[in-house]
Amino acid sequence: MTDAPTKTLSLEEVKALAKSVLVSAGMDERGSEILADLVMRSERDGPRSHGLRMLPVYAQSFESNYANPTANPTVKRIAPGVLRGDGDNGYYQIVGVEARDELIGMARENGIASFTCANCHHLGALRFDTEPLAQAGLVSLGVVNSLSMVVPQGGLRPVFGTNPMSFACPREGAEPVVWDQASSVAALMDVRMAAAEGHDLPRPSGLDTSGQPTTDPNAILETRSLLPFGEHKGAAIAFLIEVLGAALAGGTLSADNQERESFGALNIKGGATLIAIDPSRFGNPAFNVYVTRICAEIDGNGTARVPGDGRLKNRATAETNGVVVASDLLAQLQSL
């Protein structure tokens, strides 16, 4: 088996390519700049399944008229600690940027604040919603529900989305601690990327046509049935995110896919919630010392690492050397 041909791109070239695809699909200047930057950051930090390979999905959502490429979202403060957004059927990340400064100010004022948004789409890594808050000195938790693909433990059909969550907190003298993960064993785009690259997944991540767990990404894509991580524990987390995401925001439930299916889309208009906490208002002046100590107990502890820190090594390498992109993917993107 020969290696597939590749090309190395600088991060600037990745962002320029992403923006050109988004603009060609009809996206406006503001939105395309935000999403192109997130695509570049995903290629830089990983997982790269949320980077350039996500662009055809973005383009399809615009070209099918499922998502609004020129969204004009609104944000309204509805309680002392609550912001509510309407994404104007655009992407959450655009309204998230618009709400960020006010959310940070509310958290510093009240000690804790939240932003919830409906009538929006969310694709890509969730950590880019939480990391800016940690860079501002806040602890943050973000959740979003997605289209039903995850079978609850013991169930026969998907109920939940991959329903990701992200956590971030400041770390004195270093980059913030930031992690995100799906409620499923594997994210959908990781399954798609494994299928595109012609290899199995590292562990059983979904069901095949006979209802058995499998590592074959093509079989999982055929059934569209993913497994929750940790069996019933992951299913419980997916339930939590369905409530915090869809129910609080008033977004589409993961199981309600009718509109998505009519457009052939790969996501739903779910709900997103972002919670920001100011540790300086919680009464423990040694908060930073605690975080430093927790991280120190992990570092050097065998091969353990602080959650999310793998991205920092990826980032340093990509900033120096660029990223390697499959030539067939480049050809696909250049044809869009």
Rank of each mutant, 00 (worst) to 15 (best):
E98N: 08
G310E: 10
L226K: 13
N314H: 15
I298V: 11
R127N: 14
I34S: 07
V150P: 03
S183A: 09
I268A: 02
Y58I: 11
G271F: 06
L22D: 03
L336Y: 07
R53Q: 09
P69M: 07
L244H: 10
S262M: 14
V21C: 14
V143R: 00
G87V: 09
Q181W: 02
Y58R: 07
G142K: 01
Q334F: 06
A286F: 15
V150G: 01
G250S: 10
G81W: 08
V324I: 09
V178R: 05
G322D: 04
E109G: 02
V23W: 01
T214W: 12
T8G: 00
L83Q: 11
T2G: 06
P228V: 12
I34A: 11
N163D: 09
G46Q: 14
R48S: 07
P279N: 01
A331M: 12
D37M: 15
G31R: 04
H50M: 06
F115P: 01
Y66I: 03
A182D: 03
M149Q: 03
T223P: 11
H232E: 10
A168H: 07
R48K: 13
G300A: 05
A186Q: 11
A194K: 02
R192F: 03
L248M: 15
S205I: 13
A255L: 11
P152S: 00
R293V: 03
G198Y: 13
T273K: 04
I34W: 09
A59V: 03
N119L: 05
A136D: 11
E261D: 15
V185L: 10
D45E: 15
A194Y: 01
T209C: 09
D216Y: 15
S254L: 06
G300K: 08
M1Q: 06
N163Y: 03
S42M: 12
D190R: 07
S166W: 04
A194P: 01
N163K: 04
V143C: 03
R41S: 08
E63G: 02
F287K: 12
T215Y: 11
I275P: 11
S254W: 03
S42C: 15
K76P: 04
I94P: 00
V144E: 02
T252D: 12
T320A: 09
A331P: 13
D180E: 10
A296D: 07
P69S: 09
G173R: 14
M106H: 03
L227K: 12
V191Y: 01
K7A: 12
G26E: 02
A255G: 08
